[in-house]
Measured scan of single mutants.
Amino acid sequence: MPSETPQAEVGPTGCPHRSGPHSAKGSLEKGSPEDKEAKEPLWIRPDAPSRCTWQLGRPASESPHHHTAPAKSPKILPDILKKIGDTPMVRINKIGKKFGLKCELLAKCEFFNAGGSVKDRISLRMIEDAERDGTLKPGDTIIEPTSGNTGIGLALAAAVRGYRCIIVMPEKMSSEKVDVLRALGAEIVRTPTNARFDSPESHVGVAWRLKNEIPNSHILDQYRNASNPLAHYDTTADEILQQCDGKLDMLVASVGTGGTITGIARKLKEKCPGCRIIGVDPEGSILAEPEELNQTEQTTYEVEGIGYDFIPTVLDRTVVDKWFKSNDEEAFTFARMLIAQEGLLCGGSAGSTVAVAVKAAQELQEGQRCVVILPDSVRNYMTKFLSDRWMLQKGFLKEEDLTEKKPWWWHLRVQELGLSAPLTVLPTITCGHTIEILREKGFDQAPVVDEAGVILGMVTLGNMLSSLLAGKVQPSDQVGKVIYKQFKQIRLTDTLGRLSHILEMDHFALVV
Rank of each mutant, 00 (worst) to 15 (best):
S3F: 14
E4T: 05
V10G: 10
H17L: 13
S19R: 07
P21Q: 02
S23P: 12
S23C: 05
S27Y: 07
S32W: 11
S32M: 02
S32P: 12
D35F: 02
K36Y: 09
E37D: 10
P46R: 04
G57L: 02
P59Y: 02
S61F: 09
H66G: 09
A71T: 12
A71V: 12
K72W: 02
L77A: 04
T87S: 07
R91V: 04
R91K: 15
R91G: 13
I92C: 08
K94D: 02
G96S: 15
K97G: 14
F99L: 07
E104T: 04
L105K: 04
K108R: 02
E110T: 04
N113L: 02
N113Y: 02
V118T: 13
V118I: 04
I122W: 02
S123W: 09
R125A: 15
R125D: 05
E128W: 08
E128F: 08
E128H: 02
L136E: 02
G139H: 12
G139S: 09
D140Q: 02
I143W: 04
S147H: 02
G148M: 14
T150C: 02
I152S: 10
A155C: 10
A158R: 04
A158V: 08
I167D: 02
M169W: 07
D179N: 04
D179M: 04
R182A: 02
G185S: 02
R190F: 02
S199D: 14
S199F: 07
H203Y: 08
L210F: 08
K211C: 04
N212M: 10
I214A: 02
I214V: 07
P215H: 15
I219S: 08
D221I: 02
R224W: 02
A226I: 09
A226N: 12
S227V: 06
L230T: 12
Y233N: 06
Y233P: 02
D234H: 02
T236H: 02
T236S: 02
A237T: 10
D238S: 12
D238T: 02
I240V: 13
L241V: 11
D245W: 02
L248W: 02
L251A: 09
T260D: 02
T260F: 02
T262Y: 02
A265T: 14
A265G: 09
K269L: 04
E270F: 10
K271R: 11
C272E: 02
G274F: 14
C275P: 06
